[in-house]
Amino acid sequence: MDGTNWNYSDKVKEHFFHPKNILDIDEKEYQADGVGYVGSPACGDMMKIFIKVRDDRIADMKWQTFGCASAIGSTSMLSVMVTRNGGMKLDDAWKITPEMIINELGGLPANKIHCSVLGDKALRQAIRDYLTKSGQEARIPKDDKSRVICNCLNITEDDIRMEVLEGVKDFNTLQERTKIGTVCGSCIDTAKTLVNFYVGKYYADEVYGGKEKKG
């Protein structure tokens, strides 16, 4: 069995079988400048990324995962992408998308793409953590609504905002439409708060909401 019938590219297999940049020492010993953490074991996917920053570049990145082959392959690839050629600038690393990682990997089976979207999110969390810790909060993009609320289903704050704009007025409707919080459920409280926040923002005002009141 040499795996020739898998739907994974050779590059994914290479990174899956020989993952690069795994954190294999104690977290404290590593002394990361920023740590990012997304997902939960209940969703079957969890990712933790540690970065070291020098001269505003990612000097080193290490990671750990509870995840499947494509999660492992794509995060290993990501770690290579951000650390090669002297390290990627933070601003550029912030903009890495799953598509960029998937392209570097030579593609992923369509039903496995959701497993590959945790790496870039965890990396942004790590950068956010570094910027916060180093007193550079001002550099965190102000309109950053890309914060993921439901890790299991990859639903961002902006997705929730858009749902509210499209007429969602309460959490139950949001859940019906997006299935948010139906896998591990850990995001439900945050999601409820956000729905209320955006409903308040858009519908409390007659200009936004017409005659309909929030409820």
Binding site: M1, F16, F17, D45, F66, G67, C68, A69
Partner: peptide
Amino acid sequence: VEGESILLRLDM
């Protein structure tokens, strides 16, 4: 650890 990762490594 996640099952698919175990399966594929055992397959190897």
